[in-house]
């Protein structure tokens, strides 16, 4: 999921990465709507609200929304900065670091919310900003490493693509195109995971409150550790192969 970059990625890897990150994004978005009455995984609505608040002359509210949009931008910026600067040195580390940052943000919100949140407006605004930053990081990472084919925190572009692809599939020439079918599979998997994550969070929030963010963090952890495990496994297999080849060499030389 995290080891490969851009065009070397398979559809399966994109589905795995897209589904897991979309599941956590759905969880975060629904929870923030329930608790804070603000969307945190997409900014389209925030742009409209920013324009509305400016037109009404509500400058404080406009500033808050502007800061939220900036936090999402900053998340994407930081994520891609890490990837483009460290990808050559260690691809896995370059891709895992933004996810670790995202986990830190979500854990901060979850911990603060569960133990210290006094429901003041300032706290709400900062926590929403932090979640937008986390979602920006995630979106930046998935978009960057998948050559912009996977975006998991918002579904506007994805629904557009799905609409286009579905209409294309009315013609057999497009239905037989493997690349288009693979793309549709990735998009359907993301949309389904996002909605599932949202429903799951909506149900679970009633029982555990802010601890929902711990579960969202755990989902991200699965991506990091699965990849780490796969790297270790591949190294082990590679070493074993080398070792076996070493023993075989003399025998081969005798023949």
């Amino acid at each position: 999921m995290l080891r490969k970059f851009n065009n070397s990625r398979t559809t399966r890897e994109n589905i795995q990465l897209g589904s897991l990150t979309a599941f956590s994004a759905g969880m975060v978005n629904v929870t923030s709507v329930i608790i804070f009455f603000a969307f945190t995984s997409n900014v389209t609505g925030h742009y409209a609200i920013l324009a509305e608040e400016i037109s009404k002359g509500n400058w404080y509210q406009a500033a808050v929304v502007f800061a939220w949009i900036f936090m999402f931008f900053a998340g994407n910026f930081c994520s891609n900065m890490i990837i483009i600067n460290f990808n050559q040195k260690n691809t896995y580390a370059a891709h895992a670091t933004p996810l670790i940052l995202e986990i830190l943000c979500l854990l901060s919100v979850g911990t603060y919310g569960a133990f210290f949140y006094g429901e003041t407006l300032g706290e709400t605004e900062i926590m929403v900003g932090l979640m937008l930053f986390a979602m920006g990081i995630q979106n930046g990472l998935t978009a960057s490493i998948s050559n912009f084919s996977v975006k998991t925190t918002h579904l506007t572009g994805l629904t557009t693509d799905l609409g286009l692809l579905t209409s294309m599939f009315t013609k057999s020439e497009y239905r037989q195109n493997k690349a288009l079918r693979a793309k549709a599979n990735v998009l359907y998997a993301i949309a389904t995971s996002y909605v599932t994550g949202g429903i799951f969070a909506g149900v679970v929030y009633q029982q555990i409150g802010f601890m929902v963010f711990y579960i969202a963090s755990m989902v991200i952890c699965v991506i990091i550790f699965y990849e780490y495990y796969m790297i270790r496994l591949k190294k082990m297999v590679w070493r074993k192969k080398r070792k076996n080849q070493g023993y075989k060499t003399p025998a081969m030389s005798r023949t």
Binding site: F36, F37, A38, I49, Y60, Q61, V64, T124, V128
Partner: peptide
């Protein structure tokens, strides 16, 4: 009382 979102709820 408390305000939510950007102060609109």
């Amino acid at each position: 009382w408390t305000l939510k979102s950007r102060g609109n709820i």
